[in-house]
Amino acid sequence: MSYADSPDGLWKPSNKVVIPFGEANEWDHRVIHDPSPLIHNEKIYLYYKSGLDKRDANNKYWDCWGLAIADSRQGPFVKHPLNPVKNSGLLLVRME
């Protein structure tokens, strides 16, 4: 993550992990990408994408969206307990 006091910069890297990978066999244990932050009522809602590590009959890979929430732009971001909050159509089954 990088941050600035203005959209014009100067942008500074935070040099820390904002949203850690999930534990082994969790839906977001391999990759986290495409963050989309929203600010509402002084909280930051950071939607992010990860792969479910499942493929359909056509070998199509399925993505899901997670949500992490923080009180400040530098976090800590706490993953929502109902993650993934949105999927691309695959029936979700716990991998435990």
Rank of each mutant, 00 (worst) to 15 (best):
S88M: 07
M95K: 12
N83G: 10
L82P: 01
H40C: 12
Y48T: 01
N41P: 10
Q74E: 05
N58F: 12
Y61V: 09
G51C: 05
R55H: 03
N87W: 05
E23L: 01
H33N: 11
I19R: 04
A24F: 07
A24R: 12
I19V: 14
W62P: 00
A4Y: 06
H33W: 15
I44T: 02
L67S: 10
E23I: 00
Y3V: 11
S6V: 01
L82K: 13
W27N: 01
R30M: 13
I44C: 09
I44W: 11
D71T: 07
K86W: 10
K49C: 14
N25Q: 09
W11V: 11
G75W: 04
K12W: 02
L91M: 12
Y45D: 04
P81M: 00
L82F: 11
A4C: 05
L46R: 11
G9K: 05
P20Q: 04
V18D: 07
C64Y: 04
G51I: 11
C64G: 04
E42Q: 15
Y3C: 08
V78M: 03
S14R: 10
L82M: 06
H29W: 13
Y61K: 05
W11C: 10
S2N: 10
I19Y: 11
D63C: 07
I69P: 08
H80A: 04
V18P: 04
S2L: 15
M1C: 12
F77S: 06
D53W: 07
N87P: 04
D71V: 06
M95L: 12
L52K: 00
D34E: 15
W62T: 00
Y3F: 15
Y48D: 01
L10C: 03
K54S: 06
Q74Y: 03
W62K: 03
W65N: 06
S72Q: 12
I44F: 14
A24P: 12
I32E: 09
F77C: 06
K86H: 11
P7C: 00
I39R: 11
G66N: 08
K12R: 09
N83V: 02
D53E: 15
G66P: 02
E23A: 02
K12I: 12
L91T: 15
P20H: 05
A70Q: 00
P35C: 08
P7G: 02
F21W: 08
K49G: 09
R30F: 14
M95Y: 13
D63A: 07
L92C: 09
W65Q: 05
A4W: 03
N58G: 01
A24G: 03
D56F: 02
N83L: 08
D28T: 01
G51M: 10
P20R: 03
K43S: 10
S6D: 15
M1H: 13
F77R: 10
D56G: 01
P81T: 07
E42R: 14
G66M: 10
H40E: 14
P20E: 01
V85N: 03
L92G: 06
W27F: 04
Y47S: 12
I69D: 10
F77E: 02
L38P: 07
K60S: 12
K49Q: 13
L92D: 08
Y61I: 07
N59A: 02
L38S: 07
K79T: 01
L10K: 00
I44P: 06
